[in-house]
Design a protein around this nucleic acid. Structure first.
Lengths: 201, 201
DNA sequence: CGGCGTTTTGAGAGAGCTCAACATCGGTGG
DNA sequence: CCACCGATGTTGAGCTCTCTCAAAACGCCG
């Protein structure tokens, strides 16, 4: 649900927009939490860095998506937020948001529902990450992200970004996509992938 | 936070206890949602079955843990809940819980905070699942689940269950544990694992 | 045109998975 | 009390698959 549909106008008025260059961090793990963030333009990824220095992408947010919801109840961020493209992020200050939840039951409820949805999405992502086969992992992603027609997937960024989001090396992703295309399972076009067969369960 | 600390007495009074045999399902994916569930005794796992028929464990809940929080806002369950041991589960009917949230702001807030925590936990689990090395995955698990002394991990069930929870084959887990023990990194005892060195960051 | 990042393709190695055999532990029933 | 049986725990060998390191083609932008 879009933020504007449930966040009181008073809170929206207190928002601060922030522009980010591609690669710039909105916040880092351990930073003090500032508030609820909404991506206005561009794409922002949530990630952690494992001990071997590799970045693990936890989530990719696009326009209309909110991030750092959970951090409203935490003093510090528990992951990094980094712009994958040039981006604009609107920050709703934490005190204002929490105060609104105190007064506006509808807002609090909508927010809770948002969190609930997020929990489900994260579970789905865990499911994805559990698949070891690159082909199946890609298929899982395509099936979940197919557009309205159930056959076309719009890619937000580069294939390299997608590889990181899927938890694969970019080489593995390239090879897998090439194999899927050779076998006729998909077709690739500029920034999009089309499934050759209607998705079926 | 324990359920009893925030769920109004009126809702708790409406709860229904359900006994489950090991292996029995509390609910299945697609079932109509009944309400918020609290594990009273035993262990219940949330899982999905992938297309190859393998079960993917999304979460394991023990006494005091709640499950199906997200399903309060959804008409149907989005995964299976299956007892890993004989278990007792208390079900708080959905309408009663939602009604309580309408009236009791504290309850609603506590629930939202619970969801927020869950989101963070799930992110941590994604991080875990992204680790391909069995040794590192096991170490990650041990570090996160060490008891109060920071060195001892109590195993809720069998090693086979643990393997499923970690997303490893049981053979890989056995070998990894054996190797860790040979190298002196851990010691194994009945249903528990002790880290030889104090956990350090 | 030159530089830089993405996209591709190649070859080799490591690691977990699969299949298989066997040991161990509890519980059951004769 | 002991034999049996199923599930868990354990180890072995081979295979497949992805990762890693390398190199080259391609596209975009100054």
């Amino acid at each position: 649900m879009p933020v504007k549909d449930w966040l009181p106008a008073a809170v929206r008025a207190a928002a601060i927009d922030r522009k980010l260059k591609s690669g710039e961090a909105l916040f880092r793990l351990g930073d003090k939490t500032a508030g609820l963030c909404e991506v206005i333009a561009g794409r922002v990824r949530l990630a952690r860095v494992d001990r071997s220095g590799r970045e693990i992408v936890l989530h990719v947010a696009g326009p209309g998506d909110t991030i750092a919801e959970a951090s409203l109840f935490s003093p510090a961020y528990h992951c990094d937020a980094i712009a994958s493209t040039d981006a604009v992020v609107r920050v709703y200050p934490k005190p204002a948001v929490l105060a609104a939840f105190e007064k506006d039951r509808k807002a609090a409820q909508a927010f809770t529902a948002t969190l609930a949805r997020q929990v489900m999405n994260l579970r789905t992502r865990i499911e994805q990450r559990n698949i070891r086969s690159a082909r199946e992992r890609v298929r899982h992603f395509l099936a979940l992200n197919a557009g309205a027609d159930g056959r076309t997937v719009e890619l937000g960024g580069t294939l390299k970004d997608l590889a990181a989001e899927l938890g694969l090396t970019h080489e593995a992703l390239y090879r897998t996509l090439a194999a899927l295309e050779r076998s006729g399972a998909i077709k690739r076009g500029r920034g999009k992938i089309t499934l050759s067969l209607p998705r079926k369960v």
